[in-house]
């Protein structure tokens, strides 16, 4: 199989380059892209990428495969490269540290900005705080985010304003806490999102929805935040 992979080591290279290679893949199995990376690394240990759980729950190996963001460990090669050539690049829009490894600092800072923890100032009861199954249901499709950054780095608004637009991943979590019946900081959370950038830079392009490896829908969550802001404003 023909593979083209983005290479860059800041100590060695002036600018990034695409390395072309030919790799024999074991027959009879539809490998995941991560398996291909591991085969490449066995041949050339210097190629750098993040990986860990290899089952799509830790969110380490978000990369760009043939132009599309996804997790290497749960993307079959046949799906990533239907025409036979696999092109691997780092997630777009974030500074490259080396090869397929990007600096996620900006992404994490946006996550931290939305107060990503439950706020409830009432003294906790001796047991758990009660929550009806219906209220708990509202967190589905939100709490499952693995912070892989596939969505935010597929979002043009995040490319343009990564320092000011929270981005789909952060906003999904912002709504996860707004939607939690146990959280009491709704007003403060909304006030912090009212500026022209944090939420309102979303243009509904929906790249986030199309690439999310967990099938989540940040655009819908952003819509709900807007509705909450509106109904609070009125």
């Amino acid at each position: 199989m023909k593979i083209s992979v983005y290479r860059f080591d800041p100590d060695e290279d002036e600018s990034p380059r695409m390395e072309e290679m030919e790799l024999d893949l074991p027959a009879g199995r539809d490998l995941m892209v991560l398996d291909v990376l591991e085969l490449m690394k066995a041949r050339d240990p210097s190629i750098a990428y993040r990986r860990s759980c290899r089952e799509g729950v830790c969110g380490s190996d978000g990369i760009n495969m043939n132009g599309r963001n996804g997790l290497a460990c749960i993307t079959p090669v046949s799906e990533a490269a239907p025409r036979g050539k696999l092109t691997l690049r780092p997630l777009p829009g974030l500074p490259v540290v080396r090869d397929l490894v990007v600096d996620m600092g900006q992404f994490y800072r946006q996550y931290e900005k939305i107060t990503p923890w439950l706020v409830n100032d009432t003294p906790p009861p001796a047991q758990e705080r009660l929550q009806t199954p219906e209220d708990r249901e509202k967190l589905n499709g939100l709490y499952e985010c693995i912070l892989c950054a596939c969505c935010s780095t597929a979002c043009p608004s995040f490319w343009w304003n990564p320092d000011k637009f929270v981005g789909p991943a952060g906003l999904l979590q912002a709504y996860r806490f707004l939607a939690d019946s146990r959280d009491t900081a709704t007003a403060e959370r909304l006030a912090a999102l009212e500026d022209p950038f944090s939420v309102f830079r979303c243009r509904g392009i929906m790249n986030c929805v199309s690439v999310c490896p967990k099938g989540l829908n940040p655009t819908r969550a952003i819509g709900k935040i807007r509705t909450m802001l509106l109904s609070q404003g009125i």
């Binding site: 923890w117 439950l118 409830n120 906790p124 001796a126 047991q127 758990e128 705080r129 009660l130 929550q131 009806t132 199954p133 209220d135 708990r136 967190l139 709490y143 806490f177 939690d180 146990r182 959280d183």
Partner: peptide, 20 residues
């Protein structure tokens, strides 16, 4: 220890009574 996790916001699945 489990109640503490719940108080921190861990999204446990719930029973009809609203418990974990």
């Amino acid at each position: 220890a489990v109640y503490e996790l719940e108080h921190m916001g861990m999204p446990f699945t719930r029973t009809e009574k609203g418990r974990i």
